[in-house]
Structure formats: structure tokens, C-alpha cells
Nucleic acid binder design. Structure first.
Lengths: 187, 187
DNA sequence: CAGGGTTGTGCAACTAGTTGCACAACCGGG
DNA sequence: CCCGGTTGTGCAACTAGTTGCACAACCCTG
């Protein structure tokens, strides 16, 4: 139940239309909570129905017209409540680790190339974060908001760094593996 | 589409009944691919229907009887195919980071306690991993299988270490935050 | 041997996320 | 002026995961 709160946060940062939200979910917020435009429109409808946000009065609310939303007091209150509420961390789900575990049983055939591909993807992501860091978090950005957002960015940077590290390690390890396709008996 | 493959992997490691699988998903495999027993039973049914696994012949297959499954050649082939196939990393989803971002807008009221709670949870998890490391990966465990599984465990250890690090940092940071509940205008 | 806990299997309903598509409005060039 | 691309909004159907519950069989204890 986090998408509505992600949207509330985004709208509080800046009232937006569905498409603008979609774009922002492709950067910033989307880095740790992704969503498609279909999800976003649906959720905007719900949130409006619940009275947490409202459409900014536009001229003709015709189809194909931009429609911007802003957060109502009830929406802000709900977000504050949710933010403060204690929540258990969700159990991790990582396909790559799962695949590696599977590879231990059915053989490592083919997986190495994908590890390499993931490595470059993570490097690209890290570079993107670094760019944001330099652009948005230079000197003088030490308001509470800035510091909290920077904390989040640091998490992203450190996570990518971890993956790069781990993947590099893994690939090195693969280099020293005897060539084999898993235990005897494989089809 | 990863749960069936997680199950295939687990069954290849050792043929099991639904409940045994459930238990193993609470440790080992479940650390990076969790599943409830309901999910597992449903998936076992599907996999059997698709001819990827089969129930081991038991005495009376009555209700309330244990029913063990083993992987058929087609299942192993499917797992090998899936393992080798290139897959994009799924966009991250992390509620805690989202909440922090929200806190930047609606105030940090209440979130600190939960950060602390998460910190101890991650410490506990790390300790568990360390235990497994000592127990299962002492000297002499250097078959290909062992090394791959150790690689996966290392990822877990390093991830937990990252979170502990980051949370500690965040809490320190919070200590130096001026007491305020977000920007003016909050309800 | 009745009652309560544990083991073991499973269905049904719900929620969240994904995929595929539709369609209006606008804007530019041939 | 019409044709194709882009912008913008949205529905419908599907897939995966979660939650709640049912119920049989076993096992132990009073």
C-alpha cells in the first residue's frame, strides 16, 4: 500500500498532472518506487475519490486535456500518519541471486554474460546518481529537506556500489571455476 | 515468474513435501525469495500439471498425508533455460526510503523509532547469516556448488552490512536535526 | 477416549502490479 | 488539409502475491 503515498509525496513536492508524475517516477522517486502511467492514473482517481487530493480547476476538463492535482489537508494527514507508522521490512526478492542459486544446481551455462550486463547497468545507474549528487547537493544545501533527500540518495549510491562490488567479485570468481555444467545427471 | 523456478531449485537440491519446502523457504532460499505455504502448494499443483515435477509414489495419498515431489527432466531443462536467459533487474522498491522522502515533506515525527527498529532487525539478520557462514562454509567447501552458494550468502551479508551502515548514519544524522515537523503549512 | 495442539494440505477472495490497447487533442510538414 | 508523430488520459484483462480460513490426520495428556 505504498503507491498512493508515493504519489502524495510527489504531489506535495509539486502539484502535477498524471503525465508529469509519470515522468518524475522515471527519475527521482521512481528510483526506489517505480510505477507505470496506468498505475498512476488509476491511483489518482482513487485518491480523488477518497478526498485526499483534488484536481486543480482547469478550463475545459475535456478528454486529452492536462489535469493537475494537489494534495488536500486530509491527504497530508494521511501521509504523515503513514510515514510515522511502524512497518516491517518486506522480505527481499532478488531474481539474480535466485538464478545463481539455481546455477549451483543446473550449471552456470550462460549466466556469466548476464552478470556482466548487470554490472554495466549498475555502473550506469551509479553514474546517474553521482550526477544528481553533484547537480543538486552541492554546498549550502543543508536544510532539513535537503539533508533527508541526500540521505535517500546516499542509500541509492551505496546500494549500486555494493552491487558493482559484488558482481565484480562474482565475475572474478567465475573466472577460476572449472568448466562444468552442474552435477552429473543433468539432462 | 520466479516462484516456480525457486521451487524447482529447492526440489533439485532435495525432493520435499509442501511443508518441507515451506520451512526451507523460511531459511536459505527464502532469504532472497520468500513465499507462503499457500503459494507453494498452489505452485506445486501447477508444476505437476505442466509435467515439470511429479509426486513421489506414497502409500495412501489421502488428505492430511505428506506428499513429496521430485523434479522431472523437463523441469530441470526449464530451470536451466530460465537460469541462462538474460533478465533485466527489476526496478527497486523500498518502502523505508520512500517514507524518508515523505518525511522530508511532512516531517520526521515518529520515523526515528522505526529506523532504530529496522537497525536491530538487520543486525539480527546479519548475525544469522554469519552463523550460516561459519556452520556451512568452513574450510574444504570449495566445490563449484559450494562456491556459488557462498557467493549468494556473501551478497546477503554485504547487503545487511550496507543497511546497518546506512541506518546508523541516518540515525546519527537525525541526532543533529533541528526539532521541527516539516515545512510550514503542515496540518 | 475426549480434547487440544501440531502437522500437513489446500481453496477462495482480495490486493497490487503488469501488459495491451484505445482514443482524443495537438502540432508539424508535405 | 490530411497524415503521422507526440502528448495526455484512461479502461480492461491478466499475473503474482497476500490474507483468511477450512479441515483431515496425528500425537500427547488428563
Amino acid at each position: 500500500m505504498s503507491l498512493p503515498h508515493a504519489i502524495l509525496t510527489a504531489l506535495l513536492e509539486k502539484p502535477s498532472s498524471g503525465l508529469e508524475l509519470t515522468r518524475r517516477f522515471d527519475r527521482s522517486i521512481g528510483y526506489f518506487w517505480s510505477a507505470t502511467h496506468q498505475q498512476i492514473y488509476r491511483e489518482l482517481g482513487r485518491l480523488e475519490g477518497e478526498g485526499l487530493i483534488r484536481a486543480l480547476p482547469a478550463e475545459q476538463p475535456a478528454r486529452g486535456q492536462k489535469k493537475s492535482y494537489e494534495v488536500l489537508p486530509a491527504g497530508r494527514a494521511e501521509l504523515a500518519r503513514w510515514t510515522a507508522a511502524s512497518q516491517d521490512p518486506k522480505p527481499q526478492r532478488d531474481v539474480l541471486l535466485l538464478r545463481l542459486r539455481a546455477a549451483a544446481v543446473v550449471g552456470t551455462e550462460g549466466i556469466e554474460a548476464d552478470l556482466r550486463r548487470h554490472l554495466t547497468l549498475h555502473q550506469k545507474q551509479l553514474a546517474e546518481y553521482r550526477e544528481i549528487e553533484e547537480r543538486d547537493f552541492g554546498a549550502g544545501k543543508d536544510s532539513v529537506q535537503d539533508r533527508l533527500q541526500y540521505l535517500v540518495l546516499r542509500a541509492g549510491i551505496d546500494l549500486e556500489t555494493f552491487w558493482i562490488h559484488w558482481l565484480t567479485q562474482a565475475l572474478e570468481d567465475f573466472g577460476t571455476l572449472p568448466a562444468q555444467e552442474g552435477p552429473p545427471g543433468s539432462a
